[in-house]
């Protein structure tokens, strides 16, 4: 099973197209292209989406980034925040069941 990052971190759940990161802290003018460009540094991006604020039309501040490859997703999770700068953080969007139930916070 490659769905474990080896540490005490959360165990992500596999999505239909691979492994999905939840990217938050995006700039109000961030686009899907920005996310694809930034994610592409870690491997081929399967899908990207930046959600817009329904009232203002600007980016709501978060997006989703999917990689088919586990290695690329794990690398992007560790490195995307540094690459995109500012307040950006990248975390798994979905957690696995089974042993993934125990959560701190």
């Amino acid at each position: 099973m490659d769905g474990n990052d080896g540490g005490d971190g959360p165990v992500p759940a596999r999505s239909v197209e691979g492994w999905v990161l939840f990217v938050s802290g995006l700039h109000a003018e961030a686009t899907e292209e920005d996310l694809v460009d930034a994610g592409g540094a870690f491997g081929p991006v399967a899908r990207a989406s930046v959600v817009l604020d329904r009232r203002t039309g600007y980016a709501k501040g978060y997006g989703l980034l999917a990689f088919a490859s586990w290695a690329a997703a794990a690398a992007a999770r560790g490195g995307l925040a540094k690459d995109m700068g500012g307040a950006v953080s990248a975390e798994w969007a979905f957690l696995g069941g089974g042993g993934g139930g125990k959560r701190r916070r």
Partner: peptide
């Protein structure tokens, strides 16, 4: 599906 803490914070 189970959402991660990062999604819950958002």
């Amino acid at each position: 599906v189970t959402l991660s803490p990062a999604v819950l914070v958002e």
